[in-house]
Design a protein around this nucleic acid. Sequence first.
DNA 1: TGATCTTTTGTACGATAGTACAAATCGTAT
DNA 2: ATACGATTTGTACTATCGTACAAAAGATCA
Lengths: 236, 236
Amino acid sequence: MVRKSTSKETARKPNMREAILAAAEELFATNGFNAVSVRDIAQAAGANPGSVTYHFKTKDGLLLEIYRRHCGPMNLRRSELLAAAKRVRDLQDRLEAIVRAYVVPAFTSGSDLAGGGARFTRLRAVMSAEGNEVARKIIAQTFDDTSHAFIDAIHESLPHIPRTDIVWRSHFLLGALYYSLVTPERVSRLSRGEADGGDAANAIEQLVQATVASFQAPALDQAAPVRRRPVVSSKT
Amino acid sequence: MVRKSTSKETARKPNMREAILAAAEELFATNGFNAVSVRDIAQAAGANPGSVTYHFKTKDGLLLEIYRRHCGPMNLRRSELLAAAKRVRDLQDRLEAIVRAYVVPAFTSGSDLAGGGARFTRLRAVMSAEGNEVARKIIAQTFDDTSHAFIDAIHESLPHIPRTDIVWRSHFLLGALYYSLVTPERVSRLSRGEADGGDAANAIEQLVQATVASFQAPALDQAAPVRRRPVVSSKT
DNA sequence: TGATCTTTTGTACGATAGTACAAATCGTAT
DNA sequence: ATACGATTTGTACTATCGTACAAAAGATCA
């Protein structure tokens, strides 16, 4: 509604607003929120610092707008893929499809909103690590619904696993996903060049396969939480 | 053994240096490096800002000292547990013991150095997300050896899985570990109070169980990286 | 006790942060 | 062409940052 459908669409350079958003997204995702100044963003976007204030009022407002931009499309895409996945007959295949529906939109690195999840997902990872307040609120509001939908779907295809276990394992999935986007070069380093951590397609396959297996693991019996501590003995 | 041997051990308050280190560790781990000022740290430690400069010269130096403090003891503990784990006969049990040897020292939340890994691990997670330069260097130097040792040990107990896959899966393990320490309340929230994300013992069990299963997953055939994309179709 | 070294305090300085605001500039409709 | 609203620019203000440094305070030993 800020827009205006009739005619007046100005801006000297072709949408400076978008350029600022893109620059901020990139810088926040790689350096964190506090390490990046409004002046840094403006410079990266080829804009004037005052322009940022004009379009987004505050630095928090800029972050907020980035979230607003991405949350909708990304959750929509996830919903579509989830709906398709739920139609898969074979239970094993269905589980894999569900996990894939969760992972793919977060990992795909197209530049537009619908597909361009990688940068935004990395941004969310960094904001979560920094304990950013603005991000925390939006995340809980926007993503918990989606998370619940996925957890429910997974639970349906694994009825014998307690919901609690599924929550934990999907939590691990998100952590692995985040970390893969934050530090991809670590994979290349540890595999001595045999794997490319930045190869999104391969990362997705690895993550999906590992996660499906973790979901299929036997349930933890909650009754005796501190049962077996096999063998491992400390010397001290 | 830090204590005294000859004579000159001063300090008005009982080891202000330690208080500053502890305060910085806590604040960095929860808010990130850039969001915390030297004055914040000094205040939390009940010290004067100048004292921080005196003991650690710069803010980076303070972070560096935190790493120096923890890296040794933590890797030592991991080595001990790994050595014990490798002696386990049964392959399944051995794998679980190895994973546990990796996870436990990072998760235990005692206050002293040998066991107090949770806060430090969270700190590492946050620094990794922020792309902190100081941290990045130390991490690569100090932890890659440990990581390789664990990857090798896991590979030995799972000879049929390619090393690349094991690297990926242990990468996911670290991501899940980090995220569990960064955002434990998310687990409580998503499980609707049925699980406590802050319960370290339970988190460890869940993580170990899920991870062992992921390691045991069948290998990905590298030959055809983009093989099956079952069913999932997009409507757009 | 007085000399000397270590630690803490208080203060200040330059740099940079977020943001406000007036002037300049541009695009568009009249 | 002119007027007007939208945008961009330039600049300035205040706050806070990391850090330096001199003075004060405390501890140790001759």
